[in-house]
Simulated scan of single mutants.
Amino acid sequence: MFIMDIGFKIKKLRESRNLTQDQLAVELDISQSELSKIENGKAKKIDFHLMGKVCAFFNKDFVYFQEKHDPAKILDNFNIDISTEKILDELSRISNEYKKKLNDTE
């Protein structure tokens, strides 16, 4: 179990509830800077008592935080279409938009 994985999951749960780090830090009774270190994988350790608060706040079992995250599953949660066709369409749209801006400034 890596702190980075736990921090990543905490961050995604926080964002899914549209909470700022400050708001969640208050709920967990820690500083915003401590929460930032946890979310960014820079904390050396996470107190077991704190993890109990995190689990209770997000209504998650501790096992949830022990499981390795699968990047493909994370993308599924955001409904991101990463098909080649979709990527090429988006690149084309961005390119055309950029060309239009260049023509407007000339």
Rank of each mutant, 00 (worst) to 15 (best):
M4C: 11
D5R: 03
F8Q: 01
K9E: 00
I10A: 00
K11S: 11
K12V: 09
K12N: 12
R14W: 03
N18F: 15
L19P: 02
L19R: 03
T20E: 02
D22V: 15
L24Y: 03
A25F: 10
A25M: 07
V26D: 13
V26R: 10
V26K: 14
L28S: 05
L28E: 01
L28Y: 04
I30A: 08
I30L: 09
S31K: 01
S31H: 02
Q32L: 00
L35H: 08
L35I: 10
K37M: 15
K42C: 09
K44I: 06
K44F: 02
K45T: 12
L50C: 06
M51R: 01
G52H: 06
K53P: 06
V54D: 03
F57K: 06
F57M: 07
F58V: 00
F58S: 00
N59W: 04
N59D: 15
D61M: 02
D61I: 01
F62T: 08
F62G: 04
F62Q: 05
Q66K: 15
E67R: 14
K68H: 13
H69T: 15
D70W: 09
P71F: 04
A72W: 09
K73W: 08
I74L: 05
L75H: 10
N79R: 04
I80N: 07
I82C: 05
E85P: 08
E85C: 10
E85S: 15
I87G: 07
I87Q: 10
E90F: 15
E90I: 12
L91I: 04
L91R: 03
I94P: 00
I94Y: 06
S95A: 09
Y98I: 10
K100G: 01
L102K: 12
L102Q: 12
N103P: 09
N103T: 14
E106A: 12
